[in-house]
Amino acid sequence: MISRYERLYTAEGAKQGLRADGRNCDTFRPVSCSTGVFEQCSGSARLRIGGTHVVATVKVELGAPTPATPQYGRLSFAVDYSPCSAATAQGRRGEDQSSELARALEQSIRPSQSGKGGALDLQSLCVLPGKTCWVLHVDGLILNADGSVLDALSLAIKAALGDTSIPLASVVAAEDPADQPEIDIDPDPSKYTRLDIQRIPVTLSIGLIGGLPVVDLTEHEELCADSMLHVSVNERGRICGITQRATSGINPATLQEMLAMAQRAAPKLLQSVQRASSQMETA
């Protein structure tokens, strides 16, 4: 809930290019990220953008591929709101919100029905075509929500996938040719493969406040926004997906402006996250 005067104050700030916390329309709040935060899973990351705090984990296990795509590995996404992350996160509404987020993230990464395209090479996850493949369970947990939750989650998931180690699996033919071949997993934890996360996009939420596009909205600013656009952009600045949220429409010229803003901002954001995590390492 928000008062009309706060809305006016925020809108005037966007017009002057000076937001309530002193940022410009195209600057992000400080981002910090650390990876490998949990021992129990194959890859994990913890990320903060301003007051927004999320954790992402990837668990790798052997499973069966879907009949439609016998040559490919599988992905599953789930997002949870911690009940104390935001007042709206409790109960049914929180469930709706988190499944919406999970879907948006999945769409930005998952390949088409045929298994081709997409941001992850799922073919490399195949162990025994039609029988066994690696299944990646990607989970996001929102510990504190202060706007731009999807941005934080997409960054954290990218970082967690980059941290994921997949054990080496080799197919050994059974002694009796009639039997199923066996799958042998290398017990040495120092031997593993990494995922190629180069193509995984980051999803940016661009809000329209007082008719002007603004990146990295705080929770307060999200309440003031007339419209929101979630744009998935990869490292090269190419757009991989767009979804719209909130009620009011966006005219084509503004839409172009918002997309251009996302394309400019995404590589910068990715760089700053990389810098933040490498700084922590040297410190």
């Binding site: 910090s32 913890r46 990389q274 490498s278 390492e281």
Partner: peptide, 10 residues
């Protein structure tokens, strides 16, 4: 792209 692991706190 590499988010590097630091293992330290945020």
């Amino acid at each position: 792209m590499g988010f590097r692991s630091d293992g330290s706190v945020l």
